[in-house]
Amino acid sequence: MKVILIGGEEISYYLGRMFLNRGYKVTMVNKKPQYCKYLAKKLKALIINGDGTDNKVLEQLELKSDDVFIALTPRDQDNLVACLAAREIYKIENAISLINDPENLEVFEKIGIEKTVSPVSIMAKAIFASSTVEKHIKSLLTDSSDLEIFEIDINESSPVSRKQLKNIEIKDGIIGAIKRNNSSIIPKGDTYILPGDKLIIISKKEMKNSVYNTFIGET
C-alpha cells in the first residue's frame, strides 16, 4: 500500500511528511516544476512533475487498488476528475478528495465520491461551536462517562424563554435548578423560564446535542 498525493502545496507537503514519518511509501504529483524540486529536497517521497488529472501521468504511478489516493488541488473540478479516474480506472476504494467550496460536499457525494474533506466546513463548524453554543453553555462535570451536567444561559431568543417547564420536552434530561437573581430555584412543572436565567441541566451525554437544540435553538 502506498499513499498518493495529487497537487496542493503546503497541505501536500505536511501530509506527505506525516505519512513518511509514519513509515508509509509516498508518491507526490505536482504540476509546478519549482515546487517539485522543493518537495524532492525536503521529503523522501517519489515526486512526479505533471498533471495528476491526466491519465498519462496516472499511468506512471503504478496504482494499485489498495493504495490511498488523495486529491489536494485548489480546484474542485481537478480533484473530482482525479478521484473519478482513481475509482473507475484503478478501482481504488480509498480515493479521498479535498473540497475547496463546501457547497460541493453534496455534489461530490451525488456523483459518487463519498470520501471528502472540506477544511472550510470543518473550520466553520469549530467556529460556530465555540461562538454560539459554548458561549451559552458551561460544562460542570466532564469526567463522568455518560452523564453531563451543564449550565445554560437563557436569553430572549431561546426557544424555551417564557415557557412553563411542563410545556418543555427534554429527552433524557432534567432541569435540576434555575439560578435567578443570585438565588436558586428548584423548579416545578408550573415554573416559568425567564430570560437571564441560568439553567442547571443534567442529561445523558449522547443527548447533549438535542438538549442544546431545545434550549438554544438550531445553531
Binding site: T53, D76, Q77, D78, L80, V81, E106, V107, K110, I111
Partner: peptide, 16 residues
C-alpha cells in the same frame, strides 16, 4: 475551454 471544469459542470447538472 477546460475539460475538467466541463466534466464537473456536466456531472453536477446531471446528478445534483
Amino acid at each position: 475551454p477546460d475539460d475538467n471544469t466541463n466534466i464537473m459542470i456536466a456531472l453536477t447538472v446531471k446528478k445534483y
